[in-house]
Simulated assay, not measured.
Amino acid sequence: MTKRIGVYPGTFDPITLGHTDIIRRGAKLVDRLVVGVTTNPSKSPMFTLDERMAMVSREVAAIDGDIGVVPFDSLLMDFAEREGARVIVRGLRAVADFEYEYQMAGMNQQINPRVETVFLMADVALQPIASRLVKEIAMFGGEIGKFVPPTVRDDVVARVLAMGRRGS
Rank of each mutant, 00 (worst) to 15 (best):
Q109R: 15
A62F: 09
R132A: 13
I88G: 10
R82H: 15
A122E: 02
A122Q: 04
R90D: 08
V134L: 04
P128I: 01
N108E: 03
V70F: 11
M107I: 15
E81A: 15
F119R: 01
P113S: 08
S57F: 11
S131R: 00
A62Y: 11
L133V: 11
R58Q: 08
D123E: 05
S74M: 12
E116Q: 15
V56Y: 12
G106N: 09
Y102G: 07
M104W: 04
G106W: 02
V124F: 06
V87T: 14
A125N: 06
V134N: 01
A105E: 03
F98A: 03
G84T: 01
V134P: 01
E99V: 09
V70R: 14
I111V: 14
F72Q: 00
A61T: 08
G106I: 03
V89N: 03
R132N: 13
Q127G: 00
L126S: 02
I111N: 03
F98V: 04
L120N: 00
I129C: 00
V115S: 05
S57Q: 14
R82A: 15
I63C: 05
N108D: 04
L133R: 03
R86D: 15
R58E: 14
E83D: 05
R86S: 15
M121I: 01
A122T: 13
A62G: 13
R82G: 14
V118C: 04
R93K: 13
A94S: 14
D123Q: 03
G91M: 08
S57C: 13
E99Q: 12
I63D: 01
I67P: 06
L126K: 01
M55E: 12
M104A: 10
M55L: 09
D97W: 07
L126W: 00
Q110N: 14
A96H: 08
D73F: 10
A96R: 12
Y100A: 10
V87C: 11
D64K: 13
V118W: 04
E99F: 08
I67M: 07
A122W: 00
